[in-house]
Computed example of a mutant assay.
Amino acid sequence: MKVHELAGLRITQALVRAVYPFDSVQTVRRGPLKGYRVTVSPGMGYTYLWNLQGREWDWVRLVGKGASIYDIGANCGQSTLHLANTVGPGGTVVAFEPTPDNYQRLVRNIDLNDLGYVTPVCAAVSTADGVAQFQFDRHRPTMGRLSSANADMDNAEILEVRQIALDSYEKLGWPAPTFLKIDVEGGAAGVFGGGHELMKRCRPVVYIELHSLEEREAVRDLIARHDYRAFSVEGSPIEDPTAAYLTQLVCRPA
């Protein structure tokens, strides 16, 4: 990028931040969430408010009214609000976010929109109930991951966070899910590892954002162990999720 282009970008960013300062409450102006109120934060600012993310939320159409959703890796509620808007008051959303700052923004966004059918949970989802170490860079707050995800983050601090296994859903009083959204920056193997009974009993549809070969291998193992089939978001069958670099997959019970 040329010097004058870089300078122009910085000026534009400064102007946007002046109009939409972090932690201010703003109203979504366009798109399916028009009229919703959100707390401005990284990943939930100008482009979110004006629905400029292109096809980022196309996968939400896979969810129906009245569905029971687990939003695993909710961050500040970017996907949670879309899911809640889609399922409506007759559905439920359980939203998991382990880092305290992001969790507080998630709760605030839920409260701002009176979404009483959304349950926020301050925890990571992985292999077992307990505590875990979580890598978190405050300059990249949408990119945190469990240390067990086998990928170190530069400049990250280590937080101790609550960890929950999906198989604990009944004892924790959560409804059985019909749909899982998973975006955990490399930790999908842990999510599936702690949810074998849930996958066997509930047979939810799974939408997953993939960040590593290990996650693609975890999807391959899910397919083999629980008799699932993998598809692109557009619906094309995927025979081997490890054969190509895929960033999104939908897994359905056979």
Rank of each mutant, 00 (worst) to 15 (best):
Y228K: 06
G193C: 05
F134K: 04
L249I: 15
Q163L: 09
R17F: 03
G173E: 14
L166I: 13
G64Y: 03
N155L: 08
Y20G: 05
L62G: 01
L246H: 13
L33Y: 04
F134L: 07
V121R: 08
V28S: 02
V205K: 09
A188P: 00
E157L: 08
I158H: 08
V131E: 15
V125E: 06
E56C: 02
D221K: 15
P42L: 13
D183A: 12
V40H: 03
A224E: 14
Q26S: 05
P237M: 07
D23S: 10
Q248D: 15
V60W: 09
L210C: 03
S168P: 10
A165T: 10
D101L: 09
F22P: 00
P100A: 15
F134G: 01
P177D: 14
L112G: 02
A188L: 14
V28G: 00
A67M: 04
I238M: 04
S168V: 12
A132V: 02
Y169M: 12
E239D: 13
S79M: 09
V191S: 04
G73F: 08
P237N: 09
D154T: 10
D183L: 10
G91V: 03
Y36W: 08
K2S: 11
R201A: 14
G116Q: 12
S232T: 15
G66F: 07
W174M: 14
V125L: 11
I69C: 02
L180P: 00
G186N: 05
M143Y: 01
F134C: 04
Q26G: 00
H211K: 02
D227W: 02
A254S: 13
E234V: 12
H4I: 13
Y207R: 04
E5R: 15
A128S: 11
G195P: 00
V191H: 02
E157V: 11
L49K: 04
N102D: 10
E5K: 15
G116H: 14
T127M: 14
F134V: 03
A95R: 06
A7C: 05
V184K: 02
A7W: 04
T86Q: 15
A156K: 11
A165W: 10
Y169W: 15
D114Y: 10
R162S: 12
R29D: 11
N113P: 03
L198D: 01
P177Q: 14
E217P: 00
G187M: 08
G193E: 06
L83M: 14
K181M: 06
E197M: 05
H211L: 04
D240K: 11
N51Y: 09
V28N: 03
A224V: 12
A132F: 03
Y103R: 10
G43P: 00
D152H: 11
L49E: 05
G66C: 09
Y48C: 02
Q135C: 08
D129E: 07
P120H: 08
L9G: 00
L146E: 04
A149R: 07
P177W: 12
I158P: 00
A128V: 09
H139Y: 11
V63R: 01
Q53M: 11
D227F: 03
N51M: 00
R162L: 05
K171F: 04
G73P: 01
A176T: 06
Q133Y: 08
L180C: 04
R29L: 13
P253G: 06
Q78I: 11
F96M: 07
R145K: 13
